[in-house]
Design a protein around this nucleic acid. Structure first.
Length: 260
DNA sequence: GCGACAG
DNA sequence: ATCTTGTCGC
């Protein structure tokens, strides 16, 4: 039975989701497992991936999921898989993976059968996610690929708050590469705020995904940044958006400037 | 005057 | 997520 893509999920579904998260969490590997992660320059790493899902304006069901693969360290797109999808689960903060991950897993599987060459051995997948057990962990465990969680905003959970103290820490970040830990109320480090390049006001929030330490995740993310948003995720975002524009152009109000 | 909370 | 223009600065 499919869930509705809008509204709140029933308590029953929510319970199932929590159990599934707990099940997957037991399979999570939060340390470095690949040889290239030990190298200061990540030599040996040849591909990095990015995923994103873009939406149609007044539609909470129709979207476009994109998976891109970039060469490393050049950061040029060498593969793209974009397609229109129909979401079945609603968005619930903390459970984003149940809405988006199934389609991302599909894309990874298509990559594996269509372009096995693209992931010689390792494709670390960069994407958005928070601290805890977000999309990066979820996707990582389900695909077995190393993943990194990258979020544009702080997920306010487990004591994390975008309060004046937090804002002050952001203000104190000097140069690209500077970081500060995201300390949860339990005293655990849930992630890192990273100033992704010299001239960005807002940091990016890095959290462990799968098969990679937080330290390596931050270092690699930093190396994937041409602008504030890591290039793999940025390309996935641009391309999924563009795909929607070209494919579903007849929806929504007329574009500004084209009224007459 | 609205509303704050990954996408 | 999405709706949105110009503008200031490197």
């Amino acid at each position: 039975m499919a869930q509705k893509a809008e509204g709140q999920p029933s308590e029953e579904i929510l319970l199932l989701w929590k159990r599934e998260q707990a099940r997957l969490k037991a399979l999570l590997v939060d340390r470095d497992t690949e040889a290239w992660q030990q190298d200061p320059d990540f030599s040996g790493l040849q591909r990095v991936g990015g995923v994103d899902v873009s939406f149609v304006k007044g539609d909470s069901v129709t979207a476009c999921a994109s998976l891109v693969v970039l060469s490393y360290p050049e950061l040029e797109v060498v593969y793209e898989d974009s397609r229109v999808i129909s979401l079945t689960a609603p968005y619930v903060s903390g459970f984003l993976a149940f809405r988006e991950a199934p389609f991302l897993v599909d894309a990874v599987h298509r990559l594996q059968e269509k372009e096995p060459i693209c992931l010689p051995s390792i494709v670390p997948l960069v994407l958005h996610s928070p601290a805890g057990f977000g999309v990066a962990c979820h996707l990582g465990v389900l695909t077995g690929l190393p993943c990194i969680g990258v979020a544009k905003k702080l997920l306010q959970v487990k004591g994390l708050e975008n309060n004046p103290v937090h804002k002050e820490k952001i203000r104190l970040l000097q140069a690209g590469g500077d970081t500060f830990p995201l300390m949860g109320s339990s005293g655990t480090v849930l992630g890192m705020a990273l100033k992704s390049h010299d001239h960005s006001t807002k940091p990016v929030y890095i959290s462990v995904g799968h098969k990679m330490s937080l330290e390596a995740a931050v270092r690699l993310t930093r190396r994937c940044c041409r602008f504030r948003i890591p290039e793999p995720v940025r390309q996935a975002d641009i391309r999924s958006r563009e795909y929607i524009r070209r494919t579903l152009c007849c929806s929504g109000p007329p574009a500004p400037g084209l009224e007459r």
